[in-house]
């Protein structure tokens, strides 16, 4: 099997085996739908609501991505400030850690009340708040742990701080940045869904889940979970793809 084919076939086979196992488990245990839906129950849910899935999925997707882009901009900015200035690092670190330690489930209702009705805004805000922390930390650590020799090589030639940043500090930090982005993308996704589920008259897959709950439509709820997983995988692999383009050099050649 060619390595290319294997890269797709192996994970796909794993998914199929997982679905078969799930189906078998539900059948063998004799679980009713409201306890645990099986994959075969999901097919009708998807065919009946496919339009809803597309619309809601898109809403979840774009709000997650906007929140994530905000998190990247703000996270990189904070990370740069903390990476270049020790004073700022010492000042901001406890604040950031404290902010990150607050469970976002408690922030969601507060934000929902603060900006009542601004559902898109609220959702993007939570997605952003939950995901910028790893980005800020990775950038600040990447910059502050840059070996002084790297800086000296350029500084000794009279290079400016910004030249050093663009030519060395930034590219050198990219692998850590993408590592953090993989975590952040999942977090942003969780943030979006938290808000969608909690908000009354929400939108997105979270709201669809909520309506499934209200109507005791268990297969629908499970179908939403699977759709969420699929979207999460999609986002994650987009980051992996970007990483291979911009930080592919950090990956050791196999063998």
């Amino acid at each position: 099997m060619s390595p290319r084919l294997r890269k797709i076939a192996v994970p796909l086979a794993a998914v199929v085996i997982f679905l078969i196992f799930w189906e078998f488990l539900v059948w063998a245990m004799g679980w009713p739908n409201y306890k645990m839906a099986s994959p075969s129950d999901l097919v009708p849910a998807y065919t009946r609501y496919w339009e809803l899935f597309l619309v809601m999925g898109w809403q979840t997707l774009w709000r997650t991505v906007v929140g994530l882009i905000l998190a990247i901009i703000v996270g990189v900015a904070i990370g740069m400030v903390m990476g270049f200035s020790r004073v700022m690092r010492e000042a901001l670190y406890p604040l950031l850690v404290g902010f990150n330690a607050i469970p976002k489930a408690t922030v969601v209702p507060i934000v929902a009340l603060m900006f009542v009705g601004a559902h898109d805004f609220n959702t993007v805000l939570i997605a952003f708040m939950i995901s910028f922390f790893p980005i800020a930390v990775s950038i600040s650590i990447g910059l502050s742990t840059l070996e002084p020799e790297y800086r000296d090589i350029l500084r000794a030639l009279g290079a400016s701080q910004s030249t050093i940043f663009w030519k060395i500090a930034l590219p050198k930090t990219l692998p850590e940045f993408f590592g953090a982005l993989k975590v952040a993308v999942t977090l942003a996704f969780i943030g979006t869904n938290l808000m969608e589920i909690v908000s009354p008259h929400g939108r997105g897959l979270g709201a669809l889940f909520d309506s499934g709950k209200t109507n005791s439509d268990y297969p629908l709820m499970f179908a939403v979970l699977i759709a969420l997983a699929a979207l999460g995988i999609l986002l994650y692999y987009i980051v992996v793809w970007l990483e291979s383009i911009f930080a592919g050099w950090a990956e050791r050649a196999p063998g």
């Binding site: 070996e147 020799e149 790297y150 000296d152 090589i153 350029l154 000794a156 030639l157 009279g158 290079a159 030249t163 030519k167 060395i168 590219p171 050198k172 990219l174 930080a247 050099w249 950090a250």
Partner: peptide, 29 residues
């Protein structure tokens, strides 16, 4: 810019080819 430096740690830039690494000072000087 009339100074050249090398350290115990070769501090080459992993994302550049060897040739591009050697040419780095010429981008600054």
């Amino acid at each position: 810019s009339t100074v050249g430096m090398a350290f115990q740690n070769p501090v080459l830039l992993e994302w550049r080819s060897i040739l591009k690494n050697v040419m780095l000072p010429l981008e600054i000087v």
